[in-house]
Each structure stands twice: as C-alpha cells, then as structure tokens.
Design a protein around this nucleic acid. Sequence first.
DNA 1: GTATGTTTAAAATGAT
DNA 2: ATCATTTTAAACATAC
Length: 298
Amino acid sequence: MPRPGRNTYSDQKPPYSYISLTAMAIQSSPEKMLPLSEIYKFIMERFPYYRENTQRWQNSLRHNLSFNDCFIKIPRRPDQPGKGSFWALHPSCGDMFENGSFLRRRKRFKVLKADPLAASKPADFLQQQAKLRLGALAAGGPHLPQMAPYGLGVAPPSGFKHPFAIENIIAREYKVPGGLAFPAVPPAYPLHNAWPHVYDPAAPLSMAGGEYGPYGVPLKPLCHGGPTLPAIPVPIKPAPAAVPALPALPAPLPSLLPSSPPSLSPTSSQTATSQSSPATPSETLTSPASALHSVAVH
DNA sequence: GTATGTTTAAAATGAT
DNA sequence: ATCATTTTAAACATAC
C-alpha cells in the first residue's frame, strides 16, 4: 500500500532537504547566486520528484530562503532586469551538512543579532559590494563577470568548491571502494544519475566555468574531506533495514538503472573512510576572516 | 494578477 | 520522550 509498485526511482523523494537542494543549486551556478526561478529550475531538472506539486514545495522552498540565515539575498543589478533578487549562501555558513546527512543539519546556521555590522545583514554589505561593482562597471568596465557574492568568495581560486557544490554533494557518497573519494584521474564520471532521483539532463552540472572536467566534475577532490565525512546521504526513507547496504557498487554506478531491483537505498557503497586527503584545502571554508559574525546556533 | 518574499504556526521527522 | 530541524500551509506585503 505504501508503495504500489511502479515506482521508478526518479520519482522518489531525494534525500535532500530544501536547504541542501537550494544550496546545491546556488553552488552550481558560476556566480554562486541564483534567482528563485533558477533555483526551481535546477531542482526540477535534476529531481523529477519535484516536477509535481510545485505549488507546495516551492512555497516551502521560499519559506526556507527567507527563514534561514544561511541564505542571503543579493539585489539585482539594474542592468540585469528580472524578477526577484539573487539568492546566495551566507559566506560563513560553511558545511552545514558535515554530519553526512543532507536531510538534516547538525545545527542551524544563525547570524548573531547583536553586532550591528553583522546583524545588519550581510546583505547590506553585499549590496554595497554590488554597488561598488556596479559603479566600476558603469565606470567603463566592459562587463566583468559578476563576482561571487561577498568580497569573500571573490576570486575563489579556481578549483575551490564549496561543500555544497552539487558535485561534492552527489559525489560524496560516491567513494570508490578503495577509499579515495576520487580516483586520481577523474574518469568519465557519470556523476549525473549517480542518484536514482537525479534526472540528469545531458550534462547538467557543467554549467560552471573552467575548473570543471568534461563532466562537470571538479578536477580535484575538494569537498572538505574533513575528519568527519561519512557523507552518506541517508536514504530517504530508510529502507526497512531490509537492505544491509548494497554490496558497495563497484563501478561508478550504472548511469542508468533500467530494471535493477527497486532497492531504495540510493546510497552506494559506504566506505566511510574519512581518511581522505589529510591536506584538505577546504578547511579555509568557514574563513573567520569574514568579519561576519554568525554561528551555528541550536 | 502572478511571482517573490516574510512570517507565523503546527505537523512531521530525525537525533539524542 | 524530548528537543531540534524540516516540511507544509497560509496570510500578507511588495515588486514586476
């Protein structure tokens, strides 16, 4: 009754919360910011599940955007007409899902409301930045690419990727049995379709600029391979403990599961060998430098 | 009028 | 069982 057969993976609810989905979308954009409509689009393109009941989940998504401090609004430039503003990730939100579950954060990211500077919403700071940029732009600059939000993310040395980069998120559970997050040489990574619920319109993830491989796969394993990185997105509805974890998918997963058993657990191999690269560059993640006072509260 | 945003409230769900 | 987070619903404001 709960699940009358006929359930293609694709229509199952992805094991990601709206927050993580939104973060993914934002991170996937070159500018690290997207207008609401684009966020919708991103999600709908990759997760068939969200092609229905749009009214419902989009309202939830919007709620999340304004309710969570980890999302900030960036005003649209006058020369960039359109509806609504852009949404970006708060520079200090770091990896909210370091606990490995993209369904639930360990703690909520909250901006402290005490310091006028930070409290005044980073958005203000941002707006100024935007204005400056705008000024510079109007001043004559041809059309520099919109920089990442916040002077902070600016100039992210090509290669660096936020933990929310969909590449990381989806790739995380994609550990090779051996333990390495990625093989030395990124193969034709069927990143897309790594998940049943991810649709994958052609080569979706490669919209960003240069630092990606042919498949939208970051050229290096960044994902803050910190010490804690089980990073196995919990299966949406923990299969009744029936499936003792798939025998660790050997290969990069069949890019398509035409008729494989409907074992939910999208989680591939577990190999939570958190001992990835010891020298993870991403530690700079929550760069304290961002004089923005924020904290994971609660 | 529709799309965006904000907010409040409560139910659902996961973690301890 | 309790607490925290997420999801849903809905009312309402503002912008395009």
